[in-house]
Design a binder for these strands. Structure first.
Length: 578
RNA sequence: GCCGUCUUAGCUCAGUUGGCAGAGCGCGUGACUUGUAAUCUCGAGGUCCCCGGUUCGAUUCCGGGAGACGGCUCCA
């Protein structure tokens, strides 16, 4: 009977542990679970190891696998377990946390490990050609930075060689699409260590993309009943004391700057500012719901080791909005946000979208009336069900101030990215004493929901770059058309074609250098420009262009008027295909 | 922040057992004027990440620092 891949991975981690013990006697063992694409095992080694040591360990693992040793389960008492693992401090700690009577060991090839199981029957079920040691990394014991740092060995492992190869291929593809690499190749953005890491500089071409995206974003928000706000980048400490950020979020905020003897903080979030706008006037239930959006740039301290390309940065622009409404309106509002979010994602070409619902944290670490939590959760559930979305519930995973839904989209190579987050907030309305006058003349507290659809513009740009491999849909392309004359004699005609397209708003460049035509095509192709218009004698005579698409397709002798109509239609429709 | 690896031209990367620093691409120049993925010529371009130390001499060895990259949740 074939075991499931998780069991195989976990069994392989025991084999890794055995191999490491053989090669490095005296090793202390941490834990060795199966993970998404393989497994790892944490060790405290007698001496540091390098990536170059991995092949020797792999070889030893293959030897153990070939031996066909059986995995044998044995139950022991706590006392026996303590004796057996007397020289294994980490295992002893694990044993102490276990219930008497539930302690089991697994032994293979003379190597015994504390383990709940299950395991494969024999090491032969682990395919020697379906795993690969991947990397050595430091990892804190139990993920706690106050505890010892262990050496973690990561491996990829699958049920078959074909699965492993498919995974390696996906990783190779991911490397090609890496937003940092594409950002350089396509001249879209940069970061500068000397000017501050984790801060993104948008180049002209990145700017073209961003403006196209933001214009669309704003139009859609106005269409969908939002208003757009602009708020300051800094706020006095009063604001952050009132919001509670200085007590709960201080480590994510930068040090204050002193202005006229007051401390000002650069904003890590936009919400307190939107609340100030709300409080600038009184509100009736008749005004609600208010939907206020802002492309608000925030700055948050991220530990230096966690910065990553466009995906994790220190300054970013949230496509933020706050919805302020009455309890009666909340269900419709949530359904509406979700529908809007799905519409945006689908327009951008994401087909598979999954929801993750996070509920009230356990214990007393949360604020707000439990009845409100229940109403909120109910409205979130109804909304996902209405949209027929697949969803998972993360019990107790909500923030202390309210439950939330996150949406994850699947990209072109199967990876999931969280973009949208929709979060209730029972904390800020209270802290800022937000009110509206209800139909009964009573002052009441409104509901407030934070939401970001794309998450942040920077991170979304990174995700989208990787999803499309830089070949954006035409409407978002920094450069939509390259006009390439076949020779010097046709430069003027190329200029004329480009000018005509530019005049109707198509982002066009005429490639007029004295390079060969082939070199220009190659260049435009590498820049992922969707339309290359090749023009020579024939085209000039006929007022036509020859279209070369970035996928290599060709269409010759198209009249310029027809091409113009075609591309304008593709842009207007936000077509995903050129 | 912590563990590991890395840092050489605008980019991608060679190289120096410690003795004046290299290629390709890109950029500039001159020539050539081309029909669907790289025309040829010449040239400019470097604090070999930064600060100390060892040495007659350090890009290279040693120490410290910065940054980038892979990790630090997935529970025996």
């Amino acid at each position: 009977m074939a075991s499931n891949v998780e069991t195989i991975r976990h069994s392989a981690s025991h084999v890794l542990a055995e191999a490491v013990l053989k090669l490095y006697p005296g090793t202390k063992f941490g834990i060795g679970p199966a993970i998404e694409d393989g497994f790892y095992y944490d060790f405290q080694l007698p001496a540091p190891i390098q990536p170059e040591d991995l092949p020797a360990i792999e070889k030893e693992m293959r030897r153990i696998i070939a031996s066909g040793a059986e995995f044998v389960r044995k139950e022991v008492s706590k006392e026996e377990a303590r004796k057996l693992f007397a020289d294994q401090p980490f295992k002893l700690e694990l044993i102490e946390a276990l219930e008497e009577g539930s302690i089991s060991l697994y032994e293979q090839d003379g190597f015994v490990d504390l383990c709940r199981g299950p395991h494969v029957a024999t090491t032969r079920e682990i395919r020697p050609d379906a795993f690969k040691l991947r990397a050595v990394a430091g990892a804190y014991w139990r993920g706690d930075e106050k505890r010892p740092m262990l050496t973690r060995i990561y491996a990829y492992a699958f049920g078959s060689k074909a699965d492993l190869e498919a995974h390696l291929k996906m990783l190779e593809e991911a490397e090609k699409r890496d937003c940092r690499k594409l950002g350089k190749e396509l001249d879209l953005f940069s970061t500068h260590e000397e000017a501050g890491p984790g801060l993104v500089y948008w180049h002209p071409k990145g700017g073209r993309f961003r403006v196209a995206l933001e214009n669309w974003w704003r139009d859609e928000h106005y269409k969908n009943g939002y208003e757009v706000l602009f708020t300051p980048h800094i706020g006095k400490s009063w604001l952050w004391e009132t919001s509670g950020h200085l007590s709960f979020y201080k480590e994510g905020m930068y040090s204050p700057m002193e202005i006229d003897e007051d401390d000002y903080y650069i904003k890590p979030m936009n919400c307190p500012f939107h609340i100030m706008v709300y409080k600038s006037t009184g509100h009736s239930y008749r005004d609600l719901p208010l939907r206020w959006a802002e492309l608000g740039t925030v700055y948050r301290y991220e530990r230096s080791g966690t910065l990553h390309g466009l995906m994790r940065v220190r300054g970013f622009t949230q496509d933020d909005a706050h919805i302020i409404c009455t309890p009666e309106q909340i269900e419709d509002e949530i359904a509406e946000v979700l529908r809007f979010s799905l519409y945006m994602h689908r327009t951008l070409g994401f087909k598979e979208i999954k929801a993750y619902l996070a509920t009230k944290p356990k214990g007393d670490g949360s604020v707000g009336d439990p009845a409100h939590w229940a109403t909120a959760l109910e409205s979130l559930k109804k909304a996902v069900e209405k949209e027929g979305l697949a969803y998972e519930i993360d019990e107790g995973g909500g923030a202390f101030y309210g439950p939330k839904i996150d949406l994850k989209v699947k990209d072109a190579i199967g990876r999931e990215w969280q973009l949208t987050t929709i979060q209730f907030d029972f904390n800020l309305p209270e802290r800022f004493q937000m009110e509206y006058v209800d139909s009964d003349g009573q002052k009441k507290r409104p509901y407030m929901v934070h939401r970001a659809l794309l998450g942040s513009i920077e991170r979304f740009f990174g995700v989208y770059l990787e999803h499309t491999a830089g070949a954006f849909p035409v409407w978002l392309c920094p450069e939509q058309v390259a006009v390439i004359p076949v020779g010097e004699a046709f430069m003027d005609y190329a200029k004329k074609v480009a000018a005509e397209l530019k005049s109707v708003g198509v982002r066009t460049k005429a490639m007029l250098s004295d390079e060969r035509m082939n070199a220009k095509i190659r260049d435009a192709q590498n820049q992922k420009i969707p339309y290359m218009l090749v023009v020579g004698q024939k085209e000039m005579d006929e007022g036509a262009v020859s279209i070369r698409y970035r996928d290599g397709r060709q269409e010759n002798g198209v009249s310029l008027a027809d091409f113009k109509a075609k591309i304008l239609e593709k842009i207007a429709a936000k077509s995903l295909e050129a």
